[in-house]
Design a protein around this nucleic acid. Structure first.
Length: 491
RNA sequence: CGGGCGGUGGCUCAGUCAGGCAGAGCGCUACGUUCGGGACGUAGAGGUCGCGAGUUCGAAUCUCGCCCGCCCGACCA
């Protein structure tokens, strides 16, 4: 917490991004800690952001042909144990229920760390013919992973997410599904959250436990660390074989299904907050901002009622415009007893994209002051206080531009911080100084990756789409390079 | 899980070394004056000093155990 004798301020982001993040989450009233370590409460404003984000992603999932479902959170131990690699990967983080109704349970129940298992079990029950496929299911759920170190949104014991699970008759179809959903995630980050991410396949060591391939979107945080923000897994027939998900094919042979799974959690919301904010607090992309415009009345003496009435008129006019399919969301801050400057800071902290100021002079001149959260610049716009309509500017267009500007800022920031290096020494320097990601040729060997991690804390995040040129050597081993990989320390 | 720091009114903290009436500023409530970048006055409300044991005539303060948070590492989304 920033220390100040008489005001509640946040730590400047430039000074300490980590502390800034904690300060802003608490003070903007997005979330708070619960009595249980590592768990968080979503306060109304924070949950409103999550719900906006959730709707946008859900629309994409439904538009690509998936159906929402809900599977239970308890998984019997014997079922979890069936996929060896999967259970080994998750064992340290699983929470168990061992008592119910005051008695010890015959069999402990895992609280889902993810749902491949329970879904596989149910599919085995339903699936008979290739004609039943594909299964294209999604669910919005909470999951529990008993993490050691936690931070609001970025890593919590219980977290909210969406997990898609699909089963296909053909390998190629499952591979295409994996790629398709990765692309949806990437577009969601870019278009809806104004967040530039890097897409690619993960190395074996970074792969989901039980998957054949894991693909991911990686975001870059202000300290140069990577945040894995979404993953899409090609599971091959691994889970189908473990849970007996099979069907009769066209040629009357019994075959195992090819499955995929893909997930985005509330972590991506934390990443979005961390990337866009500044020293004054949050900056929200309009598509996920619960409030688009805060109107602050500037009153003087006994004209309060008159000015507030003008603000209400203006708000009603603004709400008649729509943005991204919904009415523009406007808040008139008519709280008594707070001066304008306090209200400005209040809404800036909360990341509201635009503010309008309406004072007696403005009403006389038929104008209002419009201020955007990125630049903080004030400009006059024409307002008809009889009808509440504004002239000269389209707020919907302003919001679109705000959204695009945020993305452009994120994109250029990330691109300028992807650094190609000539030597391992230079690599170490970039990683330890937090300058960004390193794009480097890598021989594809787990042993090399492990050594780099040991020595620098950096891991491969995803493989770049381009392959190394012929004859290019691995930066670390000198062997022939297999991939161009993005390296970074990660959250 | 290691290392460091911390937990006293809603918030930030003083008080702990050296045991002896629980404090300050901000915030909150009421009223008044204010209001174009974090206003001011007056009067109030608000505390099992993180939890549990122990030592003591007496514990926020000493001892032991535990819980929680932050920062930095290791591990994982």
């Amino acid at each position: 917490m920033a220390k100040n004798d008489d005001k509640r301020f946040i730590t400047p982001k430039s000074e300490n991004p980590s502390q800034w993040y904690t300060d802003v989450i608490l003070q903007a009233e997005l979330a708070d800690y619960s009595p249980v370590r590592g768990c968080q409460v979503y306060r109304p404003y924070g949950f409103a952001i999550w719900e906006k984000l959730k709707k946008l992603l859900n629309d994409r999932i439904i538009a690509t042909g998936h159906e929402n479902t809900y599977y239970p959170m308890f998984i019997p131990k014997s079922l979890l144990d069936r996929e060896a690699e999967h259970v080994e990967g998750f064992a340290p983080e699983v929470a168990w229920v061992t008592k119910g109704g005051g008695k010890d349970l015959d069999e402990p129940l895992a609280i889902r760390p993810t749902s491949e298992v329970i879904i596989g079990v149910m599919w085995a029950k339903w699936l008979q013919s290739y004609r039943d496929l594909p299964y294209l299911h999604n669910q919005w759920a909470n999951v529990v992973r008993w993490e050691k170190a936690t931070r609001p949104f970025l890593r919590t014991l219980e977290f909210l997410w969406q997990e898609g699970h699909t089963a296909h008759a053909y390998e190629q179809e499952a591979r295409e599904e994996t790629a398709r959903m990765l692309e949806q995630y990437s577009q969601f980050a870019c278009e809806d959250l104004s967040l530039h991410v890097l897409n690619g396949i993960k190395s074996d060591s970074e792969k989901f436990a039980g998957a054949v391939e894991t693909w991911g979107i990686e975001a870059m945080m202000p300290d140069g660390k990577a945040l894995q923000s979404g993953t899409s897994h090609f599971l091959g027939q691994n889970f189908a074989k473990a849970y007996d998900v099979k069907f009769l094919a066209e040629d009357n042979t019994e075959q195992f299904a090819w499955t995929t799974s893909w997930g985005v959690s509330h972590r991506i919301m934390g990443g979005m907050l961390m990337v866009h904010g500044d020293d004054k607090g949050l900056i929200l992309p309009p598509k996920v901002a619960p409030i688009h415009i805060a109107i602050v009345p500037i009153t003087r003496g006994d004209n309060t009622d008159e000015v507030v009435a003008a603000c209400q008129k203006l708000a009603a006019g603004l709400r008649r415009e729509s943005y991204n399919g919904e009415a523009i969301s406007v808040k008139v801050d008519d709280r008594d007893g707070f001066r304008p400057g306090y209200k400005f800071a209040h809404w800036e902290l909360r990341g509201v994209p635009f503010r309008m100021e309406v004072g007696p002079r403005d009403i006389e001149e038929n104008v209002a002051i419009l201020v955007d959260r990125i630049s903080g610049e004030k400009r006059k716009v024409d307002v008809n206080y009889e009808t509440g309509s504004i002239g000269g500017v389209s707020i919907a267009k302003e919001l679109d531009e705000f959204q695009a500007q945020l993305y452009e800022r994120s994109r250029s920031e990330v691109e300028s911080r992807i650094i190609e290096v000539a030597s391992y020494d230079e690599f170490k320097d970039v990683i330890s100084s937090g300058r960004g990601f390193v794009l480097a040729p890598w021989d594809g060997k787990a042993s090399t990756e492990a050594r780099v991690k040991e020595e620098t804390s950096a891991t491969t995040r995803v493989m770049a789409p381009q392959k190394p040129d012929n004859g290019v050597k691995c930066l670390f081993s000198g062997d022939v390079a297999q991939y161009m990989a993005y390296f970074a320390s990660s959250y």
